[in-house]
Amino acid sequence: MVDETELSPRERQIAERYAAGCSYQDIASDLHIAPSTVRTHLATIYRKLEVSSKVELAGRLDGVAASPRSDVDHAAIISELALSLEEALSREKALSEVLRIIGASHGDLSLVMPAILRYALDLCDAEFGILFEYREHKRFRASFTLGIPTAFQDWLDENGTFSVSDQTGLGRMVSQRAVVNIMDVKSEALYRTDDPLRFATADLGGARSFVAIPMVAADRLVGAFSIYRQSVRPFSEDALRSAQIFAAQSVIALENARLIGKSGQR
């Protein structure tokens, strides 16, 4: 087994779960920490144990000796690259699985959307996500949610289809037809007003960093794919690319459901 002095108790917990196949989100939920904290620990673990893959990590945990390294900085670079590669492979695997679910769902959005949100939250290190359907004139309805705090979910349920102001993330997304990436929802002037959506997002949902991605079909806005972090951690370009991929898959699923619905009415 690994020397007791090499890993802290928390690092050992994370290493064992990751080597066993758990995702960042699974580990974060199990240990009550943020997914980004899991990744930070894993980078340290890879560096300490001088491993460059999940397979090597599992081996080290089983007592296999580390390969000799000549330079600590070199090992750090290798560990970071290894984690980045594994994350890229996870994105590819998630996308393949989402496409498989869409193909097998026969238009059943209740099977597809939770899976898409689950993969998006995992790969983007986010705590909760919402798929909003757009109802024209800057009105939205939260059709699917995952991981959302109960108070925020209750607010969405009570309000049903609601209008958003131009200053909100969703309102700006409608006007700009572009991704809106907010570093801290509490730092904007809108938070110091009585805007109901911003209050619900920040105070009921505990959200801090937020991104809204327009879902567009044939130049028509059909919804917003939004993910939230409960700490101030702006979404990186890599995270945004991942989220945009899942937003695009959500559009495909919605359009498939619409077409299947029309076909069934004939």
Rank of each mutant, 00 (worst) to 15 (best):
S209V: 04
E136A: 11
R141C: 13
D122M: 01
V174M: 06
L204Y: 07
G147Q: 10
I182G: 04
R141I: 15
E188K: 11
A126I: 12
D125A: 13
T161W: 02
H106M: 07
S209H: 10
P214D: 04
R220W: 01
H106A: 13
G169T: 07
M113V: 08
C124E: 08
L123V: 11
G103W: 01
I130C: 03
P114N: 00
D125N: 15
F128S: 13
D166M: 00
R192K: 14
R198C: 08
A115W: 04
F199L: 09
R139L: 05
I116L: 15
V216L: 05
I182T: 14
M173E: 13
T145D: 11
D219I: 10
M183L: 13
G205M: 06
W155G: 07
L123W: 09
T150G: 00
K186Q: 14
L109R: 01
V222Q: 04
F128D: 11
S175H: 09
E136M: 11
G160E: 00
F140R: 02
D122I: 00
F199V: 01
T150M: 06
L221M: 08
A189R: 10
G223N: 01
S163M: 09
I102M: 10
E133K: 12
V222M: 11
M113T: 00
H106D: 14
P114M: 11
L170P: 03
D184M: 05
D122R: 04
A202Q: 01
M215V: 03
R172C: 02
F199I: 05
D203E: 15
E136W: 08
D194K: 01
G205V: 06
D184R: 06
L156E: 03
R208A: 07
I101D: 03
I182C: 09
L109N: 10
R192S: 14
G171Q: 10
A115L: 02
S187T: 10
C124L: 06
L131I: 15
F162G: 08
V211C: 03
D203M: 02
R192V: 00
R141F: 15
Y191C: 02
M183R: 15
T193E: 04
R192T: 12
R139H: 15
A151H: 06
V180W: 08
R220K: 13
Q167K: 12
F140W: 12
Y119P: 07
L117T: 00
L204V: 05
F140T: 10
G171A: 04
A202D: 03
I148C: 12
I101L: 07
A200C: 00
V211G: 12
V164R: 11
G160I: 04
L121D: 01
Q167P: 07
F162W: 08
R172M: 15
D108M: 07
H106L: 12
E127G: 10
E188L: 12
L197W: 11
F132K: 06
F162V: 00
I116P: 01
G107A: 10
R118A: 14
